[in-house]
Design a protein around this nucleic acid. Structure first.
Lengths: 108, 108
DNA sequence: AATCTTTATTGTAATATTGCAATATTAAAT
DNA sequence: ATTTAATATTGCAATATTACAATAAAGATT
């Protein structure tokens, strides 16, 4: 035991959980905010912006990429990262439905 | 090492990460969906809905409660759970800003 | 070709999460 | 006062995550 029982849940539930989980770390939120701030693909000076070592940042970027939250384009020996709106939109749409549904049926 | 370095990030970054993290498990998404489906506070028959043991569900509920995503009202020996829209709204607003910002400045 | 720059990978230690059996708690019902 | 029902807590094993030093890989520069 200890491993998440993903097989017991729907694909959609797992999809939302995977994206949310990838955003469930302040360093990864900070990366997203930085990518937003610079308004473009950034050729990896993310390490200089974060209070974390390069391998740690690289690992966080990998997780964001695996979850489809960012894209990485190779440009020479550097890599340009940028946010993949489509994935954030999936989350946004999902949570919007929750807010709508809940505010329509107040109980507590 | 191994513990998240929360002290290096802003309160807002930690707040968003905490909420997202709590939603980063399919069981917890399934709980949210169930609470939405029944359209009301539900006096905890969540255990019967999920393919998980009672202590496991109880733990997931605790995490959702700690993150402010659900509220639990004690009613006799049962507990009524419902979604706290305010917290979901925080996430929703945050991600909406990201989508807006990114779609305004396409790069990749 | 040798070196520099940038990013990824590997290995490892510390810590956190997941899941559940067993048990405890708390309030209602008998 | 016992019993029943609902939920929480404890303790523990399995697994996952976080962080980083050391190293590797791959393209650019000299």
């Amino acid at each position: 035991m200890g491993a998440t029982k993903t097989e017991h849940f729907t694909d959609k539930q797992n999809q939302i959980a995977t994206i949310a989980k990838a955003l469930g770390h302040p360093a990864r939120i900070a990366i997203i905010e930085y990518l937003m701030k610079v308004n473009a693909c950034i050729c990896g000076d993310i390490v200089n912006e974060l209070p974390l070592a390069q391998p740690t940042v690289s690992q966080h970027l990998k997780e964001l990429k695996n979850a489809g939250i960012i894209k990485g384009n190779i440009e020479g020996n550097a890599i340009c990262y940028c946010i993949d709106e489509k994935t954030i939109e999936i989350l946004n749409t999902y949570f919007f439905h929750i807010v709508q549904s809940v505010s329509k049926n107040k109980c507590c």
